[in-house]
Amino acid sequence: MSERKGFFTDTSVCIGCKACEVACKEWNQVPADPQGLTGNSYDNSGELGANRWRHVAFIEQKVSVGVEEAPPESFAREAARQSLVSDGLDPHEDADGFRWLMSSDVCKHCTEAGCLDACPTGALFRTEFGTVVVQPDICNGCGYCVVSCPFGVIDQREGDGRVWKCTMCYDRLKDDMEPACAQACPTDSIQFGDLDELRERAARRVERLHERGREEARLYGDSEDDGVGGFGAFFLLLDEPETYRLPPDPVVPTRRTPEVWAAALGAAAVLAGGVAASFLRGRR
């Protein structure tokens, strides 16, 4: 087995160009899926799904004008302060605390993958790169993986019936090429590599951002202690996960499977017992 591969998506340098979305569709021949103008900032593609394996989120945020919150090194701090004391005509006061977050979402390729655990056909499997991939020639479209993903990633394709999601460009990895999205990303917001190395790089990165006063930077999905045993594709975020449509504390359903089975078997026993008991009265 090769080294486990992964993505580190550093949203602090994402410019929202959507090259990842397009490159992914081009390479993987994912169909277009027009949603019309959503009015949700520059996001007109909604979310990950069967027809979208990379998705760029756009979040326009007015943040407090309070000088304390502004990153100390930025000119915005001084500008904001001076604006506040200026003659009051200033329409920029709240613009100084404005930010536009962009983030490219993707399948997390979880260590404990809900979709993989749920799949009754074996269509989903773990590759030699540690990624989770659907085999389209096996999938029978039962849809169980869809409700088993804590991130709402995998979905059934209309008219096709099977489920689809990011393969981390399994075909490219086999040929020693990086995934299409990572290659297309102009600012290296999407980084591909050995997961261990990416985690170290990400830790250094977040440390560096903190040193520069960007306290809001935090890693998401880098720890193996989380509810899915760590993400194969993790993120550096600048706000809480839910702002980006990411669950704050995802837990793979399989963690509860023992309880689930215990309850189901218990209930089955009660059912059997209850049925039997209903005949007891008659015997009396």
Binding site: G152, R218, G227, D239, E242, T243, P247, D249
Partner: peptide
Amino acid sequence: NPKGGEASMVPRERPTTYYGRPIV
């Protein structure tokens, strides 16, 4: 990690959702 829940830059009661879009 997702469990850490450090305070965000701008303290809020609960973070907003992404345009009300479902997560799962």
